[in-house]
Design a protein around this nucleic acid. Structure first.
Lengths: 219, 219
DNA sequence: CGGGCCATTGACATCCATCAAAGCGTGTGG
DNA sequence: CCACACGCTTTGATGGATGTCAATGGCCCG
């Protein structure tokens, strides 16, 4: 939601949402190649988005959580360019893009908001490129964990405890690493007293140590 | 330029361009952290964009050429999030973003066009993530070369000959590899009769072979 | 004409992938 | 409600791809 709106504008923006859609774990919200009509705002649950190359390799391009928007990749070709899969039972708002375009012609604050959301996604992907292109396994995982708790904390969750909704393999795909490397690197963090791990429950004991791994002081 | 416009609309869109700006090789069009006011459309020349981590590592996030738009990353925070550097003498159109927003409220075709440009950039970055996350050095370089000639060909240049405007180091940064790896991999392509290389002049002898490297038949 | 950047190539090191095996949970069906 | 099976995770051993360090050579630009 864009900030600082008049009540009547707020009401109209509320009206953008056509329906809500519930998904069970593993269900896909949209598929690569599917016709694009709507954006999706996550109400509850965590999703992953992934792209695939022709020969079957795939790459997780992001993990999305409450309040985040999916489907922006579909605008350019009128067809979605990735899959969006629910990692747990979830609910999304369906927002027909035509309505977004129509209303944002009339409400500059909404127009600005849409541009910012798309720009934010571009900036996020720039960061992932930096991570994939120049960081080592330890650094990638540390950056991932910090990003995850930071986003969860912004949503009112603990600053230190996380329940991972994704598998080691999915984390690995996102970070350009194999699942064994994720597992091993996590184990090393445990030995070093940086995190506690029990299955998918993770507690960050020493966030500063993670920060140091991401940003080696002398370099 | 968006397609299918009325003459008077075309004229107004022409009016979006405030000024032009010429740059010499190595000059930067905008810096990370600089206040964002405008988008830039390339008229001539090739640019690179790059982001940097706090500790000084940097990552080339793209190479841009005539007709492409730079600066979209600046919208979200009102500040640019990367550097844009001319790789050769170049000229750009300066397009104040406020005007874009104002006019696209009145001209739906322009609004649509802006959305598509941003979405296209998101899709492009998805592809780079796939490349960085899951491809081997040979595959990355083959994909890079094919993408380059394809974009040059779309601009009326040869389908097989390229003058690389960037160094091996810059290609390596973009592809998440070291410059020695780029050099070695190129040399291997030469030995295999796939390309000819003389300094920055490159001729693709066997595009199908490159395509096969990108997309290994059995996988 | 000279200097510095860029590129090439070799030798070696390192990190991560691969292959493999075993343990643990979870959830599903009987 | 219990038991089994499958998926996920962990851990070890090994290998391969790419990074690192180093030296040389060639252009291009000044």
């Amino acid at each position: 939601m864009p900030p600082g709106l008049q009540p009547h504008e707020l009401q109209r923006i509320d009206g953008l949402v056509k329906t809500r859609r519930k998904l069970r774990r593993r269900e896909t919200l949209f598929h690569n190649g599917e016709r694009f009509t709507s954006l999706y705002a996550i109400r509850t649950g965590v999703f992953k988005t992934r792209v695939a190359s022709d020969d079957g390799r795939d790459q997780v391009t992001g993990f999305q959580m409450a309040g985040e928007i999916m489907g922006l990749d579909g605008i350019v070709n009128e067809h979605h360019n990735c899959d969006a899969v629910a990692l747990e039972d979830a609910e999304v708002c369906v927002i027909p893009f035509e309505r977004v375009e129509a209303l944002s012609r009339e409400v500059p604050a909404l127009q600005r908001h849409v541009h910012q959301i798309m720009s934010r996604e571009i900036v996020r992907e720039n960061g992932v490129m930096l991570l994939l292109g120049s960081m080592r396994a330890e650094e990638r995982l540390a950056a991932f964990l910090l990003n995850l708790v930071q986003r969860l904390h912004a949503r009112g969750f603990s600053r230190s405890e996380v329940v991972l909704r994704m598998t080691r393999g999915e984390i690995g795909s996102y970070l350009g690493l194999k699942l064994e490397t994720i597992s091993r690197t996590l184990s090393r963090f445990v030995v070093d007293g940086i995190v506690e791990v029990r299955h998918r429950n993770l507690r960050i004991l020493d966030p500063q140590a993670l920060q140091c791994i991401v940003n080696p002081p002398g370099r």
